[in-house]
Design a protein around this nucleic acid. Structure first.
Lengths: 146, 146
DNA sequence: TATTGTTATACTCTATAACTATA
DNA sequence: TATAGTTATAGAGTATAACAATA
């Protein structure tokens, strides 16, 4: 089979593997029932805060309507808050609440466990190399994301 | 941030990137309207045939109920057929029809284009190295898939 | 009793479009 | 006129469970 097609199939299988491993772990710690995308959004906010809904959408590659809906949910559940606006009133920078920070810590643990489990077959060096390759893939085209 | 968590976030972004790139390409060639998972199922059958629904589910990491539903759709659309049974009557080995083979060729092209596009930032050597790492990740645990 | 596959259901994710408000 | 965000809708993917047929 063509090497590029092989890569595509490998990618699909890896994505499924990751998802299958992550799902039960995430559910177990998802006390606030925010779902996998809710968890990703919390995670992104914990990394870069304050951040607007549009920026989150660009980072995660999801449509703004989806981000908007889940952000509303997260606010309703008290996990994130809108910060005081200084400039553009259309933008609504978001930050974690204390409860949200706790939830992120739980998700973080699940993420780490999943990474370790799925990437377990790789040595430490290989894992680092893998991460570098991912960074190169994402970085080159990713600049236009944000 | 923890390296394992970084990897998890990179994985999510890569998956999204792949999906976003693949979706419009696949739609364009999806003459029979079988959807992305329908395309993956056709693709798997084209690689290993005859193959049962259960084996497809294991390979793709999807639930048997989902495979069953889409396999029914693919049969209804004339893209695959059940082969004559020789042994276990519960199992229903599947194979591509001529129409299905044409559809697979179209999907194959879309897969190759997506791989080239998303993995474009990598050199030929890096891409080979990336594929090797994927094989190692999938191979070690993947044996239990089938 | 276990396995293969089917069917039904409910939930989540997703894309699209129309909309409001701000700039 | 353009941008940030909201809301509504429809469609696709998913997990779960109950079920039938076969082993």
């Amino acid at each position: 089979m063509n090497k590029d097609a092989t890569l595509a199939l490998q990618m699909d299988r890896l994505m499924r593997r990751f998802h299958s491993d992550m799902h039960p772990r995430a559910q177990k710690v998802d006390a606030a029932k925010v779902g996998p995308i809710g968890g990703m959004i919390l995670f992104v906010i914990s990394e870069q805060s304050p951040i607007t809904a549009g920026e989150i959408g660009a980072l995660l590659g999801r449509d703004k309507s989806q981000i908007s809906r889940i952000v509303s949910l997260l606010i309703r559940k008290g996990l994130i808050e809108k910060t005081a606006q200084d400039g553009d009133a259309r933008r609504a920078p978001l930050r974690l609440s204390d409860t949200g920070a706790l939830q992120v810590a739980a998700f973080h643990g699940a993420l780490v466990e999943t990474s370790k489990s799925v990437l377990g077959p790789l040595s430490r060096d290989e894992r680092a190399r893998f991460s570098e390759l991912l960074a190169k893939i994402l970085g080159a085209q990713g600049k236009t994301d944000s």
